[in-house]
């Protein structure tokens, strides 16, 4: 391979192999973490930004340009790093930390159509599900209705049934404002991903 003189060739080659080995270590994604490299990071309360294509298509279509994260005024969108295997560089929203306020700026800048340009009402990042054994209102311990108050589609996505919150899956966008607002710990209302998996959900 090397066109150098024979005397230096051995050293050169050794160095080169060392570098190849180092490069391999670097390129091996997630060597340190035992995180599954091909399974999606989308799970409860960890959601794709609005308008995302189905999760099977997402890592294929997204070119990881990060523009959705750059434009997000609320810093909701985070960029995954290489520990997430082939999902490195894709955007993810942790609604417990910062939910999506549905400003719909990210869908306008996505150059690949991975986030399709849709309206607020059409957004389906996931579906809010109330855990009635944790919700203090449903347990009859208090009269909390934070999720109802913060819901951007109040009376549609969440309405009160005898003062208890009920989610309507026809209107819930999965923005996560309710999860973010829920004072109960662990959260009594969580966003379940709906587009996430065809196979089993983990």
């Amino acid at each position: 391979m090397s066109r150098r003189s024979v005397s230096e060739g051995g050293q050169t080659r050794r160095n080169f192999i060392k570098f190849l080995a180092a490069a391999f270590l670097l390129f091996r994604p997630g060597a340190a973490q035992a995180r599954p490299l091909l399974s999606s990071p989308v799970k409860v309360n960890r959601l794709r930004p609005p308008g995302a294509v189905p999760e099977e298509l997402f890592p294929a279509k997204c070119i990881r340009c990060g523009r959705c994260a750059e434009i997000c005024p609320y810093r909701s969108i985070k960029i995954l790093d290489v520990r997430y295997g082939v999902f490195a560089g894709t955007p993810l929203i942790n609604v417990e930390e910062i939910p999506c306020y549905l400003c719909m700026k990210c869908v306008e800048v996505c150059p690949t159509g991975t986030l399709r340009p849709i309206s607020q009402e059409e957004t389906r990042m996931g579906l809010a599900v109330i855990n009635r054994r944790r919700c203090v209102t449903w347990l009859g311990l208090a009269l909390c209705r934070t999720c109802y108050n913060v819901c951007p589609f109040k009376e549609k996505a969440i309405h009160l049934d005898q003062l208890r919150p009920v989610v309507d899956e026809r209107f819930c966008t999965g923005c996560g404002l309710c999860t973010h607002g829920c004072p109960v710990n662990p959260k009594a209302i969580n966003i379940e991903p709906i587009y996430a998996f065809r196979k089993k959900r983990k």
Binding site: C65, G66, R67, E70, I71, K105, V109, P111, T112
Partner: peptide
């Protein structure tokens, strides 16, 4: 200031 955005994977 979102007029210029991104980097050389996609620049807007």
């Amino acid at each position: 200031f979102n007029f210029v955005q991104g980097w050389y994977q996609s620049l807007g």
